[in-house]
Write a protein that binds this DNA or RNA. Structure first.
Lengths: 197, 197
DNA sequence: AGGCAAACGGGGCGGCCCTCCATATCGTAC
DNA sequence: GTACGATATGGAGGGCCGCCCCGTTTGCCT
């Protein structure tokens, strides 16, 4: 694989100062626009808000997914950090539950994050990074919880994450989405515990 | 409410014959197009396939949701019929489970049905009809199942339907979506049974 | 058969995504 | 400080789409 530069970080080759500046402006504008209009926000409007031409936006982010990834990567890292915190401070079972709730909160607070993460995982190599980070972080919590007997066998972390994403996805357009998401998450978590002997 | 005509049926005021003919053509074309390209199929292409002008399509279906509703209403009725069948032929618990699986199958087979039903429910009065029909059909199954002790309290039919839709929504873009949907549905259904004393 | 309301559809407008290329800007070597 | 090459820019334009206006056609009823 000859292509070694990731989108988010300044890895191998230094870029010109103005390019870097515009990159940051675009990400900032995109963050605002996505918060307002969701992940389907107009790319042209983002470029307009950032004060750059649409061509510039397209050069920095060849696809919408790339842009979303850049916007969300910070939040994803925060979630992973939270996973480590929870693993250190709590019992395995509650830690996993609390983390899944945190994931739900983040996803609900960032319209389109769920869809982005779900679809990005195998749309080529696009959201790969974010997806892998979350999965890894969750896997450790799940392993701990299973060792502690708080989770039954046959449950994969990707299943849990998909369910959390699914719930947020399905409730984010509802009038009382937050409450419903809460209820559904409880329901699902009950199915995850070992059948009480 | 002065507006009394529903989109799907010929209710109060008779329409001209050609209008009705074009209506049917558009629905047929839309059905085909949606099966091919999903719920985001181009309206203009649908009009083209139906052999009508885009204005005509737009007059019959002021919004995309209306068109989707017309396309899916047949399938929705089939699901409701299936609910009655199951209620008659099986024990309440298994009947509910089987029906939810049937819903999942239908939703998975009709790209965009899930989103359509979810968002249509309160986007004005748009998907109201379909949504209400499904909810009513499911409510009876759920009531039966609860009376039989197969479902714990605190579970609403809308929760279950939302979860089923959510699962299909989240897995329909996955490579092995069907298998994953199956697994997730099992997981959820386990959470619905009363905690085995 | 004739008149009228209902229905039609071509064509235009604006927005979106994306690409090309002449131009401006940065970084550097002198 | 200056001049030069590479890098980055953005406006213009093409293709597509959804939506709507309005002159024309068509079905319906008498």
């Amino acid at each position: 694989m000859p292509d070694d530069d990731r989108a988010a970080a300044p890895p191998a080759r230094p870029r010109r100062a103005d390019a870097r500046r515009n990159y940051d402006r675009i990400v900032a504008a995109a963050t605002a626009a996505i918060a307002e209009h969701g992940a389907e926000a107009s790319l042209e409007e983002i470029a307009r808000r950032a004060g750059v031409g649409s061509a510039t936006l397209h050069r920095h982010f060849p696809s919408r997914q790339r842009l979303l990834e850049a916007v969300f990567s910070g939040k994803v890292e925060a979630l992973c950090a939270r996973a480590r915190e929870l693993a250190a401070d709590h019992d395995p079972g509650p830690a996993l539950v609390a983390w899944l709730r945190a994931v739900a909160t983040h996803v609900a607070a960032n319209r389109g994050l769920a869809t982005s993460l779900l679809q990005g995982a195998h749309d080529g190599a696009v959201g790969e990074g974010c997806h892998a980070m979350i999965v890894d972080a969750g896997q450790e919590l799940l392993d701990g919880a299973r060792r502690a007997g708080a989770v039954r066998d046959g449950v994969a972390i990707v299943d849990l994450l998909t369910l959390v994403n699914a719930i947020c996805l399905a409730t984010e357009h509802e009038p009382d989405g937050a409450a419903q998401a809460e209820r559904l998450l409880d329901l699902v978590l009950d199915g995850v515990r070992p059948s009480s002997t």
